[in-house]
Design a binder for these strands. Structure first.
Lengths: 159, 159
DNA sequence: TATTGTTATACTCTATAACTATA
DNA sequence: TATAGTTATAGAGTATAACAATA
């Protein structure tokens, strides 16, 4: 066996980030998002677009501002994403109060939604599989607390 | 008391992501990175640049490829960052084997490095402050395991 | 020829300012 | 006038292909 099986044959560099929670969080998030991207790729949809599908599917009639608030996104940034979904005939738009538009999934959108939901479920099961049963909620609670520690009680928006 | 103290006065939307570890990881990472950005801002340096300073400061003489490997970055993407640091006279470059260049911090770079290290330490203490003493290592181990679960044993680079 | 570094480029994500439309 | 949505734009991060320089 002359093949190198070591997953990290890196040079002997001192890594100042190994013990830092912040960078480990980021590294984990990047890896997880990368895997999600791969999981969604056969469906021809990006994570950002898929998350809109998930939100609209779970909340028929939501408006763009609702979505922006829920995802902590800038309304302006939703426009190209929703345009793309609309061009694929995945969305229905109905007039709502004011200038608002009530969004829901078209029949085609519903079909893709089912696939996307499955992909998300598979993905989350995969990345959670090493976490002891019944401990996932505690981990999420911890992450939520870190968000609070990171951004609250001083000048930061509650991302 | 008529003031709304609720940090999240959001509409009653069903959030399909609340229970998903992946999105909570991402949300946490975004919040933490935002806070780090704010912490570094007075020093006039972005997190990406600061992480180069940290790596070079801890490993005088590293080359660009060493850095790329350690940070899982594309070598091409380091160029503009290192150029920016060089223009600020923060780096010294010495010829090394092959076409490689050994990077180290200039005197000015060392001064900024001290401040950056302090900022990183403060930042990490802040986001870790809710984690019970002596449990940080376990949390990091869990994150590392999630990275493995997310990307290994099937077609993904070990991010 | 293999490795290192660089250039150019393109795409995604994010943020802001300025604008339009509606009640 | 306040809210919803849009346009344009700019910055940052990331990825790839093509190229130059060195051993």
């Amino acid at each position: 066996m002359t093949v190198n099986d070591d997953p990290k044959p890196e040079p002997i560099l001192s890594d100042p980030f190994e013990a830092m929670l912040g960078f480990q969080l980021r590294r984990t998030s990047v890896a997880v998002m990368g895997k999600l991207t791969a999981e969604l790729e056969p469906l021809g949809i990006l994570p950002s677009e898929a998350s809109l599908l998930m939100l609209i599917g779970a909340n028929p009639g939501v408006t763009q501002s609702d979505i922006a608030r829920a995802l902590r996104a800038q309304p302006a940034n939703l426009v190209p994403l929703l345009t793309k979904l609309s061009r694929r005939k995945l969305l229905d738009r109905a007039p709502a109060k004011g200038r608002a538009v009530a969004l829901s999934l078209s029949e085609q959108g519903g079909v893709l939604y089912a696939g996307v939901r499955e992909a998300f479920a598979r993905h989350d099961a995969r990345i959670t599989r090493s976490i002891p049963d019944g401990q996932k909620a505690q981990v999420i609670a911890m992450l939520r607390q870190i968000v609070i520690d990171a951004c609250c009680a001083d000048g930061m928006p509650a991302t």
